[in-house]
Nucleic acid binder design. Structure first.
Lengths: 133, 133
DNA sequence: GTAATTGCAAAAATTTTGCCTCATA
DNA sequence: TATGAGGCAAAATTTTTGCAATTAC
């Protein structure tokens, strides 16, 4: 958790954010490491982890939950949905603004609902071509 | 991937499935291990992993993507949504059947959309009590 | 100057795998 | 009895952490 009173703008942090915003993929920590290392060959993995975590807490990037094997991040913080291919598992942004509707009744859960997130799944262009339905 | 032509019904597999269906939480592999070990003290973690994976592939349980730090499983395979507390991160089932609507237009993604999944977030009863809005 | 941040390396946590033995069908 | 599955332990992967040196403010 972010407890520090102050955060400084370091070369490393700036470049990590910059590179993450450039890519349209949803890179893992390792992938970010590889990308950033091209500009900062001596940067350490620990620094990548610490900065991605901090940037996500500050809302400058998003930590994704589309992969339960490892963390993935997204430099695009605009509200947008993702779609995953059920064949090859690749994940892409999707230009759709879904509306979610539900009946208010069974709120027995006791939760105060504050929002929701929609994720789509389907077949990506490549896989559709490979095995036409 | 499931390539075996045949699968056998073992004591271990039956008990893992049985215990997973009993709990209403969404346990991690480690938690399943602890639960199952009460009935099968000599079972190994590897067996838990292998079976959960296999049961998920067979559709008898669900592998969840609500935690990007580790795998979580759900013995309830009925279509249902989850809600996570933004304060304490706990995840519960929610008795809501959301409908998702979107405009068909911008299908430039090239994806064939086959379905979607909605996840809710909010404040759980405990956290609402602790810090009233 | 002070304290946040880094690089490095070791440790922790999570998941996968090889191999030999056991047990289901 | 053939082979899928289990137990065990080692390896692989992913993430966290301690610490001395560095750097932003």
């Amino acid at each position: 958790l972010l407890t520090k009173t102050q955060t400084r703008t370091t070369k490393q942090r700036k470049i990590i954010l910059d590179e993450l915003c450039k890519v349209k993929t949803h890179p893992t920590v390792d992938e970010v490491y590889d990308i950033v290392r091209k500009r900062l060959p001596r940067i350490s993995l620990g620094t990548i982890y610490r900065n991605l975590e901090m940037l996500a807490e500050q809302g400058k990037i998003k930590k994704l939950e589309i992969d339960n094997q490892r963390m993935r991040f997204d430099g695009n913080t605009d509200a947008h949905s993702h779609i995953r291919c059920i064949i090859c598992s690749s994940v892409d942004d999707i230009e759709i603004e879904p509306k979610v509707i539900w009946e208010e009744d069974s709120l027995e859960s006791g939760y105060q609902i504050l929002g929701n997130k929609v994720e789509f799944f389907g077949k990506c262009p490549k896989c559709r071509m490979r095995e036409p339905e």
